[in-house]
């Protein structure tokens, strides 16, 4: 099953009643088991695009759909990991993780089994009964990831999930995400402004430009999925990062001027 983003554009009306084009003419496909990273300078509409794909915003034109076999009998599901994490503060880690399973009316036993499986997978074993407030930023986001994985979605969406974390935690979380991804192989759309992160995680990187947000380039990352930060791949890794940076640099500088 693949996800098709077709001719998507989005126009906002700003506070001065002026039309602002956030996205224009966006076309790409997320294949089965593909990890796509959207990268771009601030204000390029990457989060807007992710929200449209996630069904939290309607596009002005165009459409987003699943395509594949057997779609009549089942509705494909989406799991979203939010930048703001968005754990329910009144639910414990376990209750948060099984939220989607409860809403899907799974039996208590199934909830318990899947919930525990994904809690173990993200490394939160022993914190099942903690409230989000009691967790560190990295652990909160692990719970957020477990919640999205638990429903075993057909498409996993991640909106700058590690941007609120410190650099060290972030590096660890990226490695862990890759480990988890290798076990689940979920089709993933990942949004970030961090180029290293994009090259480290992606099968394909989609570079967006700003004003309006358009696809500037789609880059296949031709590196093995694991061990990209090893010495042997260092040179190629840096080449990709530099290529992307050259594409973004001008836009990023413009974004900085506008504040």
């Amino acid at each position: 099953m693949k996800v098709v983003i077709e001719d998507v554009s989005k126009t906002f009306i700003d506070s001065k009643k002026k039309e602002v084009k956030a996205l224009e003419n966006i076309n790409f496909t997320i294949s089965d088991e593909e990890f796509i990273v959207l990268v771009g300078p601030s204000g390029c509409g990457k989060s807007t695009l992710l929200n449209i794909v996630g069904g939290l915003l309607s596009p002005t034109t165009g459409s987003v759909y699943f395509e594949g076999e057997g779609l009549e009998e089942r509705t494909p599901t989406l799991g979203i990991v939010f930048q703001e994490i968005a754990l329910f503060p009144w639910r414990t880690v376990y209750e948060n993780v099984v939220y989607g399973l409860q809403e899907r009316k799974l039996s208590k036993a199934e909830q318990k089994e899947k919930g525990q499986y994904y809690i173990d997978m993200v490394g939160l074993t022993g914190f099942e009964n903690a409230y989000p407030k009691q967790l560190s930023g990295g652990m909160k986001q692990r719970a957020g990831i477990a919640r999205a994985l638990a429903i075993e979605p057909h498409l996993l969406l991640m909106d700058e999930p590690f941007s609120a974390l410190d650099a060290q935690t972030r590096t660890i979380m990226q490695e862990e995400l890759l480990t988890i991804w290798n076990r689940t192989k979920l089709s993933t759309l990942y949004v970030t402004h961090n180029i290293q992160e994009a090259v480290y995680l992606a099968d394909r990187v989609i570079v967006l430009s700003r004003h309006p947000g358009k696809i500037k380039s789609i880059i296949d990352i031709d590196l093995p999925k694991n061990g990209r930060n090893n010495e042997e791949h260092r040179e190629k890794f840096e080449q990709y990062a530099d290529e992307i940076w050259q594409l973004i640099r001008h836009d990023a500088e413009e974004a900085l001027k506008e504040g």
Binding site: G54, G55, L56, T77, L78, G79, I80, F82, E84, A86, L87, F88, Y99, G100, E103, R104, R147, I151
Partner: peptide, 11 residues
């Protein structure tokens, strides 16, 4: 965000 999260997870 919490409302969006709930809807996303099927509420």
């Amino acid at each position: 965000m919490l409302i969006k999260a709930a809807v996303t997870f099927g509420s």
